[in-house]
Amino acid sequence: MDTTEYNNCVNLYADGVYRFVFKNLRDADGSKDIVQEAFARLWERHKDIDNAKAKSYIFTAAYHLIIDHSRKMHERPLMDGFDTVQTAFRQYTDIKEVLDAAVAKLPPDQRSVIMLRDYEGYSYDEIAEITGLSLSQVKVYIFRGRTFLRRQLESQGIYSANMEEAV
């Protein structure tokens, strides 16, 4: 990968990587730092990395940086605690808000695989390669994540009867 290809990668993937990181961390400054670090790592190894693999490499680096950052921040998985205190009294008017809140409560692994799947359209194999999980783990995480999101939507009163209105 030469300099031009690297700059093209920045142009093409920086937004996607930033969205992926930002949606995971909910921290603009931290997300910016991680994206810059991911691209810095890409640049350090740009001579060894094929252009076709660049996107996967960036997301892999970003994913690992997210994990490291989460560990530093002592982030706890929220899968078990449904944050009932807050959700019980808060009524969302927009389904996107409900979904955002639900995604924020997902465990990091499930959140990451679902984002890679939905935002970037990666296949299970590619997600497994990026996250270092097995294919079965990816499938299980996606299934659990979807189920969790469905339950969260349901708990916030997003029923089929008024779903169209909510949307």
Partner: peptide, 15 residues
């Protein structure tokens, strides 16, 4: 409900 769990496309620009 499951169909609503797909994260909608969202454009966030990297600063």
């Amino acid at each position: 409900l499951y169909s609503k769990t797909i994260l909608p496309a969202e454009q966030i620009e990297c600063p």
